[in-house]
Design a protein around this nucleic acid. Structure first.
Length: 604
RNA sequence: GCCAUCUUAGCUCAGUCGGUAGAGCGCGUGACUUGUAAUCUCGAGGUCCCCGGUUCGAUUCCGGGAGAUGGCUCCA
């Protein structure tokens, strides 16, 4: 018996007439656009099964910007097949079929989907009495709904098939690989177009593209994929960033450590990395009969320093930071520009303190992090509080206290937050901060994690006022996350137009004619003497071309100099943001730029 | 790793229905000496990703491999 027949065998109603019921059935309420997306997914499944009869269907949910549906095709389909599917979908939509719902028993559902192995598996996981089918235009799908009333509610010009991708059934690598078709889908054409525009904007800002255009960094597959080469201009950015980072850390009561890149295997056996994390570690190298590993984390090294002396409660808290370069093996398919790499530098720190100190310490870390994001120009920040998972180490009382101190800190700072129930690591609860970039994308950057595991495994102790040896609290934190990934996010956030203090080249002097090269050189010398990164463009290109090049490089200040400026000791300042140019004395310009740099101003 | 797509000059990309290839930018050269987003000239630069097969002949067609890119959490 086919699904359609089962569907027709019983009473059905249109979704419109049971308003609310579908939503009631769904575990989560659906927004109108999600309903449209999910309905469009059904239409796509119908189109696909009409074009390729016998194709097995799996699942087709709404996602952030559209929907997808997973299929198992008898023979592979290609990108070129997408237009035909889209065309068929439009035909179905124009047909104006109604979405109808019917509730069936488990047995009926089994009969209906006898030929659909994935549906059968899903049915087995459902409760009898809570199973519903939806039908439109003769196509029946197992679905809890809700759906739009009529296919016409899906705008034919507000969706667009995107791509074909492989996806494992239920995300499990051991299960069959299905063919997933992704689509963008919105409730109006304008929304779709706005989204496509955003994607275009994102592509312009892509860190790989700008990394090349602005000569910031490169990767070399032949020398090892996922490893970053910082060019001189990327290097300037990084040196300035790290200089600031170090100053801020000292100012906030941290000490800075330097630890080795490799260490003997017992460190990683003790830390547990070789147990849980081996697949992400580089293979060992044999040195004098011992196995050494490149470090995937800095913690065991910091702990070695902690244990180099007997620590008193009087020594705590210890705030130890390191720009520690670590190596982690990532599968080749997941590498991505600066965002996902195999070697990177964490802006890591460990805070070791007594239970009494923990609340203040957490608040301090959070404050410190927020102040850094503010300086860098990120305003929209959200916290995610991850609580104890099913399997965990450490005493429950410690978990409770730790979680409470995290929550208090978030509330005290007035941050919006979500609780990720059971989302913590087995070794402790954590706060993650996500920052929103200039085009509205969220990036997870800061992480503040308790660790009840390491202190135990490495037997860390301090002597308390009562003479007892006690276990300190340990917190890992990374504010920027990794320098590489932060650089990538920052490139995309700013489009390469970094604030003046971080700009590899801060000013380019452009003489209107080579007659004024000497004055241009003098201006450069004056600027350089004050530590401003300046260069004169003395090439034989035309002035307009020089401006275009400097603008393309996002140079904050383009100083045009000619007869007038030479006579008066001034510079004609052109700003990269397109504001009106202004002529000022060299001294005034110097003062302005030095102030911007000193203040780490986001303005020019 | 798996699925799909891609790989041609330093970069971005054309192109060859099978006869070893082009543009723009960049680079070098010569001329021009310029007032706020591209001056003109000439030139150098390519194992058309790699290995096999078919063919008189393969960058192009077929097979295999490598790498890159988009995906592989969203639950019927």
């Amino acid at each position: 018996m086919r699904a359609e027949d089962v569907f027709r065998a019983g009473p059905f109603v249109s979704d419109a007439s049971i308003a609310g019921k579908g939503a009631l059935m769904a575990s989560q309420p659906q927004s109108p656009v999600e309903t449209i997306r999910h309905s469009a997914a059904h239409v796509m499944a119908e189109a696909v099964t009409r074009i390729w009869p016998g194709t097995k269907v799996a699942i087709g949910p709404a996602i952030d910007d559209g929907f997808y549906y997973d299929f198992q095709f008898a023979s592979p389909i290609k990108d070129d097949d997408l237009p035909a599917i889209e065309k068929e979908m439009r035909r179905i939509i124009q047909g104006g079929a109604e979405f109808k719902r019917r509730e069936v028993s488990k047995a009926e559902a089994r009969t209906a989907f006898a030929a659909e192995p994935f549906k059968l598996e899903l049915i087995e996981g459902l409760e009898d009495g809570s199973i519903s089918l939806y039908e439109q235009d003769g196509f029946v799908d197992l679905c809890r709904g809700p759906h739009v009333a009529n296919t016409r509610e899906i705008r034919p010009d507000a969706f667009k098939l995107r791509s074909i991708a492989g996806a494992y059934w239920r995300g499990d690598e051991k299960r069959p690989m299905l063919t997933r078709i992704y689509a963008y889908c919105f409730s109006s054409k304008a929304d779709l177009e706005a989204h496509l525009k955003l994607l275009e904007e994102a592509e312009k800002r892509d860190n790989r593209r700008l990394g090349k255009e602005l000569d910031l960094f490169s990767t070399h597959e032949e020398a090892g994929p996922g490893l970053i080469y910082w060019h001189p201009k990327g290097g300037r950015f990084r040196v300035e960033l790290e200089k600031w980072w170090r100053e801020e850390h000292y100012a906030n009561g941290y000490e800075i450590l330097f630890t080795p890149h490799i260490g003997k295997s017992w460190l990683w056996e003790t830390s547990g990395h070789l147990g849980f994390y081996k697949g992400n570690m580089y293979s060992p190298m044999k040195i004098d009969e011992d196995d050494y590993y490149a470090k995937p984390m800095n913690c065991p090294f910091h702990i070695m320093i902690y244990k180099s002396d007997t620590r008193s409660y009087r020594d705590l808290p210890l705030r130890w930071a390191e720009l520690g370069t670590v190596y982690r093996y990532e599968r080749s398919g997941v590498l991505h520009g600066l965002m996902r790499v195999r070697g990177f530098t964490q802006d890591d720190a460990h805070i070791i303190c007594t239970p009494e100190q923990i609340e203040d310490e957490i608040l301090e870390v959070l404050r410190f992090s927020l102040s850094m994001w503010k300086t860098l120009g990120f305003k929209d920040i959200k916290a995610y509080l991850a609580t104890k998972p099913a399997e965990s180490v450490g005493e429950p009382s410690r978990w409770d206290q730790a979680l409470e101190s995290l929550r208090k800190a978030i509330v005290k700072e007035g941050l919006p937050y979500e609780v990720d129930e059971g989302g913590g690591a087995f070794y402790g609860p954590k706060i993650d901060l996500k920052v929103k970039d200039a085009i509205g994308r969220e990036w997870q950057m800061t992480t503040i994690q308790f660790d009840f595991n390491m202190s135990e495994r490495f037997q860390m102790e301090y002597v308390d006022a009562d003479g007892q040896h006690k276990r300190p609290y340990m917190v890992h934190r990374a504010l920027l996350g990794s320098i590489e990934r932060f650089f990538g996010v920052y490139i995309e956030h700013t489009g390469g137009a970094f604030p003046v203090w971080l700009m590899p080249e801060q000013a380019v002097i452009i003489p209107v004619a080579s007659t004024f090269d000497d004055y241009a050189k003098k201006v450069v010398a004056d600027l350089k003497r004050q530590g401003i990164r300046a260069r004169a463009d003395l090439s034989d290109a035309r002035m307009n071309a020089k401006i275009r090049t400097a603008q393309g490089q996002k140079t904050p200040y383009m100083l045009v100099v000619g007869q007038k400026e030479q006579d008066e000791g001034t510079v004609a300042v052109r700003f990269r943001d397109g504001r009106d140019q202004s002529t000022m004395s060299l001294a005034d310009f110097l003062a302005r730029v030095l102030a911007r740099i000193a203040e780490k101003s986001l303005d020019l």
